[in-house]
Amino acid sequence: MDSEIWKKPLFKGNPVTVLVLGICSALAVTVQLKGACIMALSVMVVTAFSSLFASLLRNTIPNRIRIIVQLVIVALFVILVDQILKAYVYSVSKMLSVYVGLIITNCIIMGRIEAYALGNKPLDSFVDGLFNGMGYGLVLVTLAFFRELLGSGTLFGWQIIPESWYAAGYLNNGLMIMPPMALILIGCIIWIQRSIQKDLQDK
């Protein structure tokens, strides 16, 4: 297997920072690291398995209803994930609220099925889906790390910033919890990435 399959989506072809896919459903879940990790895992599971199944079925899908069939496959896995979250990590599923459902419309998944799974072997598609989900998760977790640390002084709910700092006048940055900060942080991540990989820069 070509090692590009899994290397590319993590950095050079990262779905979020390079291809600008799948930003919609997930920025709001990066206030806390825990939510972001679960969301990242859910997306990985869904991208991997829907790519796998789409690839298995690729020679049977009637062309005219291709998009709907893909949506049904994706929706099936999203519902499964949603049901499992509700049953086993209820508090997190409450926090993610509608954003779990929105994985369906996460462009990464449909994008990978269209662009890769429909033309490749099941195993390759599975790996491709998995690592694209992971590339997405990587951005999510990075964002959540900074937002939770700077916004609430905690990580995974554990107090990280010592009390003595607060006593000395340190304040949590309330803006970090607000939604717009996620966008600005992504902007910064892209800035850093493109400073390193000059070939990605816009002319």
Binding site: T17, V20, P180, M181, A182, L183, I184, I186, G187, C188, I190, W191, I192, R194, S195, K198, Q201, D202
Partner: peptide, 14 residues
């Protein structure tokens, strides 16, 4: 240069 296009757009939206 590195912020052109996508990067600055994100920040503007923020």
């Amino acid at each position: 240069a590195a912020l052109k296009g996508l990067g600055i757009t994100f920040i503007v939206v923020g």
